[in-house]
Structure formats: C-alpha cells, structure tokens
C-alpha cells in the first residue's frame, strides 16, 4: 500500500493527522461484542438462505413458465418444412421420355461412380425442362447396382434410385430421376 507523503502536508494537515492518530483509545473486543457478532452472523445466514430459496423458486417458476409457453411458440413460429415439390414421375401428363445426352439407345452410359459425369446422373445440373422420368418399371428400378452404378438420390422425396447403365434396359424404361432435384 503506497501511503501518502506527509512532506506535502502543511502544518494544519500534519496536526490534523496527529490528532486523529492520538485520539485513538483502546477498545477491547469484549464478550458482548462477540455475542452480538455471532447473532449478526446467524441472522445473515438466515437472510442468505431465504434469498437463495426465493431465487431458486423464481428460477423454477421461470423455467416452468418457459416450458408452458414453449409448445405454443413452436406451433406458431417454427420454420416450415420444405414445400413439396411437384412429383415428376406420376404427375407428368404424358411421359414422353427424352434421352439424355450420354444415354445411348442401347442403354449403355459411361460408368462413373462419382455421379458427376452427365446430366443423367447429376441431380443439380439439369434444367427443369429437360427432366425426364420414364414409366416406373419395378424390374428396372430395383435392379441391384453393379459396382459401376450411379446412385441418384431424389432430394424431395428421399427416394433413391439406382441407375445401372450397363444392365438396365433402354433408357426409356429406366426409372432414372433426372435433374429433378433442384428444378424447383
């Protein structure tokens, strides 16, 4: 603790400091002081306990109120689910299949496992107008994919269709969902 430098005090200030120090009288810490101090500590404990209890009760009440109000808010304010995209396969008025550029009439496509080669296998690259879905044929839709197969996942519907270019029948009969993922 850095104390004040008494050299900068004038005479009055030095005398004032001396009077304050010299006027101290010895006051022992007596039993009555101890008793009073202990009663003060006890009452302080009670006050603190009561304060904690009130705080806990308020916290519980606040949490309960929050839980009570939360479901209503969820119903009103929760974000909407993605809007359903138009289902391409069943709702197209006339399934006029259009061959994708890399689909040969014989049904052989370039087997690339990354799924990024042609519009027929990339869900994001094809304009909506060129989306083509052939008539659903269970025999071709559920064909197990060879190692070279390309998996196309339709995002809105969550369906996954395996396209096996090498083994599938002509493209007009495959159930490839082409370019429909982000066409909306």
């Amino acid at each position: 603790m850095d104390h004040f430098d008494h050299d900068q005090f004038d005479h009055f200030e030095r005398e004032l400091a001396r009077m304050m120090r010299d006027s101290q009288e010895t006051t022992p810490f007596e039993a009555k002081h101890r008793t009073r101090l202990r009663s003060g500590v006890r009452s302080g404990r009670r006050v603190r306990t009561a304060r904690k209890a009130v705080g806990s009760a308020l916290a519980v009440a606040g949490i309960g109120l929050g839980f009570f109000l939360l479901p209503h808010d969820r119903v009103d304010d929760r974000p909407q689910a993605p809007l359903p995209r138009p289902a391409l396969s069943p709702t197209l008025p006339g399934p006029t299949p259009t061959l994708t550029p890399d689909t040969t009439p014989s049904g052989t496509t370039s087997p690339t496992p990354t799924g990024s080669t042609g519009p027929s296998s990339t869900p994001t690259g094809t304009p909506a107008g060129s989306s083509t879905t052939s008539s659903p044929d269970p025999s071709t839709t559920d064909t197990s994919a060879p190692p070279s197969g390309t998996e196309t996942t339709g995002a809105p519907t969550g369906r996954s269709t395996l396209t096996s270019p090498a083994t599938s029948p002509p493209a007009t009969e495959s159930s490839a969902t082409v370019g429909a993922a982000d066409s909306g």
Binding site: M1, D2, H3, F4, H6, E13, L16, A17, M20, R21
Partner: peptide
Amino acid sequence: AVVLRYYQDLP
C-alpha cells in the same frame, strides 16, 4: 475522504 486521507494515509 478526510479520514481516509489523513488518518489512513491513503493517496
């Protein structure tokens, strides 16, 4: 302030 400065010698 006076007591702290002159009795307790605080700056």
